[in-house]
């Protein structure tokens, strides 16, 4: 039994002119179906305007599908009754770290979710402690969020979601506004939570390097799922990705170009280590005596 079922979801933005007449309809998500198993690490890729963020907001019941349905842990998101429970099951981390931190100091922000859920005071403190430790921000618990770096702020945001004990976390381009250092920090935290706590992760991004650790990758284009599969499968299809205006990781690109130039390399090389190994193999084949 999967944790999230997205069933032929369609979402339309209705554009209106100044007199409130319908000017046009933009279909942001167009008939997407997805099923996510508990504990999976899913990545959704796509360039700007491909509908990936809109899709993410459906899982958290911030947006409702115009057609189709989204079921989170057996609860339909259209069901008003389950609204709070759905938001607790599927936590969400947004793009801008400044605009999602509510508390004036770190620990207060992490406590905000449990406070809303009506968790008793003593347990709130326990939850705050364990979630800040899980993202490695416990030493900063009494800092003002304004004094933290972008990566640290985003880790606090993740801790704030973990404190609600979700089964699944949706990260909507959490690294888009961060520098490379911050990006690494955040992705490391996300992977650790997926590995250790077995929290289902749905990472929405347009950085290819972040995707290689995912169990499955979906590429969205014009509101539809254009490609789906393991990172290896996806990144073997370099030319297709380019048609969707997406880059592949540098290493993969290098391997692809080498292959086009006639070097016999396997498809879908993702890391530097893989490439070195493959190249060494090639070297041995060509020159067995060295």
């Amino acid at each position: 039994m999967g944790i999230i079922h997205i069933n032929k979801v369609k979402y339309e933005y209705i554009r209106r002119d100044e007199e409130n007449n319908v000017e046009g309809i933009t279909t942001a998500v167009d008939g997407v179906s997805l099923a996510v198993e508990p504990g999976e690490f899913i990545a959704i890729l796509g360039h700007n305007g491909s509908g990936k963020s809109t899709l993410a907001k459906h899982i958290n019941a911030i947006l409702y599908p115009s057609e189709g349905s989204v079921v989170v842990d057996g609860m339909d998101t259209q069901d008003e009754e389950h609204l709070l429970q759905i938001r607790q099951t599927a936590g969400m981390v947004f793009q801008n770290p400044d605009n999602q931190i509510i508390g004036q100091i770190v620990e207060e922000d992490v406590g905000f979710g449990p406070e809303n859920m009506g968790v008793p005071t003593k347990e709130i403190w326990e939850r705050v402690k364990e979630s800040l430790k899980a993202v490695g921000m416990y030493e900063y618990r009494s800092y003002s969020p304004n004094k933290l770096s972008g990566g640290q702020k985003q880790r606090v945001s993740i801790a704030s979601v973990i404190a609600m004990h979700p089964k699944c976390i949706i990260l909507d381009e959490p690294t888009a506004m961060l520098d490379p250092m911050g990006r690494r920090e955040v992705i490391r935290a996300v992977r650790a939570l997926n590995d250790v706590e077995k929290i289902t992760m749905i990472l929405i991004t347009h950085y290819m390097e972040e995707v290689i650790y995912a169990d499955r990758v979906f590429v969205m284009d014009k509101g539809k799922v254009a490609m789906g599969g393991t990172p290896k499968e996806i990144f073997s299809r370099v030319s297709e990705l380019r048609d969707l205006r997406l880059d592949v990781p540098q290493v993969t690109e290098l391997a692809y170009e080498l292959k086009c130039a006639g070097v016999p390399l396997p498809d879908g090389i993702l890391t530097r280590e893989e490439l070195t190994q493959a190249l060494q193999k090639v070297k041995k084949l060509r020159d067995p005596h060295s």
């Binding site: 958290n60 911030i62 709070l84 938001r87 607790q88 936590g91 969400m92 947004f94 801008n96 605009n99 999602q100 509510i102 905000f112 979710g113 809303n116 859920m117 704030s160 979601v161 609600m164």
Partner: peptide, 12 residues
Amino acid sequence: DLAMAMEARCYH
């Protein structure tokens, strides 16, 4: 953005 983030964290 903030309103959305608060709602996503069960604020009611």
